[in-house]
Write a protein that binds this DNA or RNA. Structure first.
Lengths: 193, 193, 193, 193
DNA sequence: GATGAATGAGAGTTCATTCAT
DNA sequence: TATGAATGAACTCTCATTCAT
């Protein structure tokens, strides 16, 4: 463990714990124990547990969106690219260590008043929506803004439930179903290529 | 407060608190204070907080499914009945005291090992799926089992994300979007009436 | 379960629990559950848990002393009868369900102020001492009162530690050692027969 | 109250309470109140109440064995040294704050499954046995291992019952009786000096 | 004679955070 | 910069006993 970047190290340790055990079930003591640092060291780098939580959410989101974009780029134009988010999700599920959506789960654990983290998550989900809108725009010809939002919104809704329901039912049928249903969202649209 | 049925009274009080504040954020002390009973009285009726949680989930589910069925019966045959679950959800949202899906939220709050509550929630969601399957069967003519499952599953996925995303974004656009997208799931099917 | 003698039934159930689990570790609820009676029924027959404890001690003592006397009567006069208490103890140990001395254990569990139960136990132990004194008188010729007390007291001390130490070490070497040492207590005495 | 060594301070306070009132009768709340520390401070130093109990047992044993050895060294060789443990016990009784054997009492208070503390107590008693064996070896000439174990075991049994019975009967006759009987254990042995 | 719901007091334990060093 | 001892507040749960029925 190099201490040159302790902050990153803490986030890494906390991320794993938060995602696998839950935010509330993970105590500060467990984080410092697994990080092998002193308690005050943690509080030197982070104002509060909530701050670690935000760093955790930001890191997960950044990695996720980056990987998704890369994955999308590799897919063929048209229909494959439009529904490749479900393949990406299926891969995540198969790789193990799948515990559903960190954002939704974290939101559920926090008191409803927590505006700070809510704002972070809302922004992240909007970024995902925006990206899906770009994918739709890239792969459907002559499409209006309204249509773009409708289709990308549909993919978004199917994706969000696919991840949550797969986690709930401990089975990936929601992913496969969502993937098979997605094309009906743009059945009448004119795909590029 | 009539003490003729304390058990029900406790569940009512706990339900409200669990749903609005969250399961972990609601302590036993708050439940007994709001219920105006002694701590040991609560534990006389419920073995543990987990047991209250299960009673809460069961009650919510029973009320929800009952009301949904009643609401569906009132809708016109065909397309209206197929998508009326989104109208039902919109009504719930408008009536206030909407805090997303109690089942998903509760699941997020519990340690991943909690098989007991997971099983309850899985069963409840399967009951919803079954009911949606019946609605599809009642309103689409000459439909195979596979098609039924696909369409009802689609409605289920859209409903589940509609409720979660509406809660997340504090806006009912996911409900309206889901409702407008649902018909594309059975665009080629032959509706009754 | 015949309810003709509920009181006895309760004592039987409580005795087993007290002896195997300990007095404090055994709750009233467990007693009524295992007795299959109502809580108020228990309190109808016993004023308090302490009262059940006394009934438990009295029953154990009565059974023990009765069986010991019977066992002693069967032994041959002289040395065999003088040390047969250790054979009796070894038998108890071998029969299983041996958990040390109920009196000493119970005394340890109660607050030092509890004069009531202390008195009961002191009396019981004195009865044992008295009986051992009779055995000594029966088996040693021309013995003074002082000598009788010394020898019976010695047997008593060896017996008491044999039972406690056997329980502590989970091994019956203290019983065998005590039995082998006891004769040195009356090495110079003149045994009958 | 110097807070330089809080851990020791807690053990001291708990020791007194455990020994005089009993383990179960002494609550964590009482320990922290008498220690004048916060509850979380106690749990910072000790994992559980059981851990404090072990520290209590270890401390008592260490002090006891140390003092007993010192006391034995001061006694004259031969018979005085062999039976001086009873004088040591009588002194303890006279000094007040005598409440029997902490180990036996604690064992009686714990559920039979508690292997951890049982092991500690068994080890401690074996250390006492070992020490008594050394004393026997030092004071009896030409003695075999078997004879050593028999005599030291006898002293051990008499000592153990002397302490327990003195506590039970609230009278030191068991100590005096045990002391007077002990020499019969090595009546035929050849003492040094 | 028998019921079981209700209780007040307390149990042991864990939490995120602060502060003197 | 880094430490870890100390904290107050909260946690879930259990106890022997009583009382109206």
């Amino acid at each position: 463990m190099q201490k040159t970047n302790i902050k990153q190290h803490i986030v890494n340790v906390a991320s794993k714990l938060f995602y696998t055990q839950g935010y509330n079930a993970t105590g500060i003591n467990e984080i410092i124990a697994k990080s092998e640092i002193a308690k005050a060291t943690l509080y030197h780098h982070f104002k509060s547990k909530e701050d670690i939580c935000i760093a955790y959410l930001e890191q997960r989101h950044k990695i996720f969106l980056g990987a998704l974009k890369e994955f999308t780029d590799k897919a063929n134009k048209g229909r494959p690219q439009l529904i490749c988010i479900f393949d990406y999700l299926r891969n995540s599920y198969r790789e193990g260590e799948f515990h559903g959506c960190w954002a939704i789960k974290t939101l559920s654990e926090l008191p409803p008043q927590n505006q700070k983290i809510l704002t972070v998550i809302q922004r992240q989900k909007k970024e995902l929506l925006l990206f899906l809108g770009e994918v739709v725009g890239d792969n459907i010809a002559n499409i209006s803004i309204a249509e773009t939002e409708k289709i990308s919104g549909g993919i978004y809704l199917l994706y969000e439930s696919a991840i949550t329901e797969t986690h709930l039912h401990k089975n990936d049928w929601p992913i496969h179903l969502a993937k098979s249903l997605a094309p009906s969202l743009f059945a009448e649209a004119q795909l590029v290529n």
